[in-house]
């Protein structure tokens, strides 16, 4: 039985349906991300699990118990917010101990737990400081310690890294994941950052327009997107239009070449997608499909050179590693791209 079970969840604000028939089952100790653009309903789902919003219909069960009748302070959840939400009038230690104090934990036990949490987040000496005396990354670590101190059943993370600068964000996401693994706490993480979702999660739920478009592990989400939206939202994508020549056999004509995709296709035109990393500049072994084009843009990014190549009426992006002995191609230069047909994704939806 799943530890956190969300079934047929619906929520509207006025005439706007923000969550539609949302279903998700999370196992104990699993780290699941809700990924999607602004307004897709991911935060609303999280807030309904926390109890800050009431669903119009559906059920939410934690460890088998229906929690919809419980107030937020009765649900045994820990939550970390984007804006840290540390209590400004309390010290770091008082913030971390707040949930324990509310539960009526004894002084000695509370002090020990606060010390343990501060050590866990790597700030054992900052207990007497006030939140305003900490950096953004430190504040968010304290917020995490505060959420974990009362030993909640579920940890909810509402875009906890969005307010931090890039370097801190990367180091903190690794710390959060390590702590989550250590404690084995079931975690639901909301983000609009695909890199965060892919790098941290056991499973990712890609949401769009209130619906869960795909649920899967990061590898599956990235490599086998179920819908056009998932393919386009997760990672960079090249979309090429092809003509279906044999729907039953799954044959298409692309850039004047016949390719077999090995699966039936609807008649007419098909949208084929390519990740930039499966496109090679020039001939490459095992990549038999050749596309002739002309360099439209070149961006030198140091270790990587990002190029956009005009192929007929489409554009194809690709990345190549920098080689000191080979300068990047010039804009306008005629080039040949090579691709393996099995790397072509057929977009649906």
């Amino acid at each position: 039985m799943p530890f956190l079970e969300i079934a047929r969840l619906e929520k509207s604000f006025g005439a706007l349906r923000v969550v539609r028939d949302f279903n998700l089952a999370i196992e104990k100790g699993e780290f699941v991300s809700l990924l999607g653009p602004s307004g897709c309903g991911k935060t609303t789902v999280l807030r309904m699990v926390a109890g800050f919003e009431a669903p119009d219909s559906g059920t939410i069960r934690i460890d088998g118990q229906d929690v919809l009748g419980l107030r937020p302070n009765q649900r045994s959840i820990g939550m970390v917010f984007q804006a840290y939400a540390l209590f400004p009038n309390l010290t770091v230690a008082q913030n971390v101990g707040f949930g324990l104090k509310v539960k009526g934990t004894g002084r000695a036990e509370m002090d020990a737990r606060v010390d343990e949490m501060l050590r866990l987040i790597g700030l054992p000496d900052l207990g007497q400081r006030y939140p305003f005396q900490l950096s953004g990354g430190q504040q968010q670590r304290v917020a995490l310690a505060r959420a974990l101190a009362p030993k909640p059943q579920v940890l909810l993370l509402d875009e906890p890294l969005s307010a931090l600068d890039a370097k801190v964000r990367v180091s903190l996401r690794n710390e959060i994941r390590a702590i989550q693994r250590d404690l084995g706490i079931t975690t639901l993480f909301v983000t609009h950052d695909q890199e965060e979702a892919l790098s941290m999660s056991d499973r990712v739920v890609v949401m769009n327009g209130g619906l869960a478009e795909q649920v899967g592990d990061p590898h599956e989400i990235y490599n086998r997107p179920a819908t056009r939206f998932v393919a386009q939202f997760v990672g960079t994508l090249n979309v090429l239009e092809a003509e279906v020549t044999d729907p039953a056999a799954g044959r298409v004509r692309l850039a004047g070449q016949e390719i077999a995709l090995g699966r039936p296709l609807p008649p007419g035109r098909a949208s084929l997608a390519l990740r930039p990393e499966v496109v090679s500049l020039g001939p490459a072994p095992g990549r038999d499909l050749r596309l002739a084009g002309r360099i439209a843009e070149v961006h030198f990014l140091g270790s990587v050179i990002r190029m956009r190549v005009a192929v007929g009426s489409d554009h194809v992006s690709l990345d190549a590693f920098n080689r000191p002995d080979a300068p990047p191609p010039a804009v306008g230069e005629a080039v040949e791209l090579s691709v393996s047909p099995r790397d072509l994704l057929v977009l649906e939806g």
């Binding site: 937020p72 302070n73 820990g78 939400a85 949930g99 509310v102 959420a147």
Partner: peptide, 8 residues
Amino acid sequence: EAAQSLGA
């Protein structure tokens, strides 16, 4: 909401 999530 932070306080509520901590049981207050």
